[in-house]
Design a protein around this nucleic acid. Sequence first.
DNA 1: CACGCATCCAAACATATGATAAGCTGATTC
DNA 2: GAATCAGCTTATCATATGTTTGGATGCGTG
Lengths: 243, 243
Amino acid sequence: MAARVFAIRSLAGHLKARYSLDRDDLDGIERLNGTARSFEPNQYLLREGDRPKYCSFLVDGFVYRHKIVADGGRQIVSIHIPGDIIDLQNMLLQEADHNIQALTAATVLLFPHEEVVALAFARPAVGKAMWRETLIEASISREWIANVGRRDARERTAHLICELAMRRESAGLGPREAYELPMTQEQLGDALGLTAVHVNRTLKALQDDGLITRSKRSVAVNDWERLRAVADFTTNYLHLGQG
Amino acid sequence: MAARVFAIRSLAGHLKARYSLDRDDLDGIERLNGTARSFEPNQYLLREGDRPKYCSFLVDGFVYRHKIVADGGRQIVSIHIPGDIIDLQNMLLQEADHNIQALTAATVLLFPHEEVVALAFARPAVGKAMWRETLIEASISREWIANVGRRDARERTAHLICELAMRRESAGLGPREAYELPMTQEQLGDALGLTAVHVNRTLKALQDDGLITRSKRSVAVNDWERLRAVADFTTNYLHLGQG
DNA sequence: CACGCATCCAAACATATGATAAGCTGATTC
DNA sequence: GAATCAGCTTATCATATGTTTGGATGCGTG
């Protein structure tokens, strides 16, 4: 399966690429008791109200987090790609305030909260790296608020395509010009605050304008600069630089 | 001035109320080099692109954070009340990805980043408390995504009124049944992803239905339970319990 | 007191997006 | 290879929200 080619190796390896960690820091990470676990597409990793005991590091596949509102509507609040530490958000909170679900088949490594917290404070460089990861996620959430709140469907959709392209590239998962995007239009709508029908219209318009090409479950960006401009996309909120 | 009555005393005092910290933890916090600083209404505390060197603890007044999109539209991404640590979000990031601005006259205490980080890792209980505060903020951001993405104007507006009521009450700033809300309808619109005109319509509708009463710059909640139901509001995402 | 300015409010009209429905495609199953 | 099913596509119609405008109100400043 194609996705497997890009699977991330290990938490230590991934953090090492972005933070300056010494031998002891890396040893600490490698000594964490990680358990691999696989999930089917659509399977829940965690439900709102649960009391999670593990952080999960996403090795392979896509995962997303979402909330359900009163009328049954669903809002996806984040999308995760291999290399993301999915569950640091819940680490110091008691009760999950959202659901986490597998988008595709996915493999994660589970690490017990207590061990991760203990390591974070025993090895401050590791703690800072993890804390920083949670802050970057928060930054992405803020951008999503602006995206959903103040951009129209066309800008919004283009923005999501740019963001995922950039995050994938930055995680070493492949070039931003074309990538696998295994989301249905319904799911895209739930991420963008739109209906599936309108996502369809919008994607078609972007394609007719020569900005992107869609095939089955992947996107090609034909004109990155123009798409970027339409989306009002910048990379600053992703904080891609070294920590 | 009325707001001053509710001013928060100190960072140590505020954290002590929510976290179990021992004498050394509190000493560490009190020994931080905090500088008081006042801001005029609308004055910027920080601009996108700045490289902040201080965390700010909000003692008095209201502050908000926002982003500007391509067409000049503005999206408020968070609203802060006394007791909030405004700038932990930027602490481990280089460059601010959003603006921070005073809503009313405001007083903050500034603490140098390095000192705060050093304390966080010297006194893990303090570090956990601060980290947790940033995670709660992230949780609120997620709820805002859902609010703007999947709730209509009426629900959205009611939700914001409930959230601020609850957060104020929980911070010990007064009862949730009535409170000062010194935001213009334009600013409310920027927070809700609506236009000022539509905020006006929506507030009027909520008032006509007997849910709230507005006077000058404050709100009274006439029927908390009904407003809560309209808003689809729950407190779980605020994580009000002890850390 | 007069003036300017921000805010609130209301009405008329415009439009982006939602809702519903129906047909189409391609994969999977028996 | 027929049947089924999920997802995509397109069209029509409905509506929530935006846009524009103008007037009322209140407040600070000269």
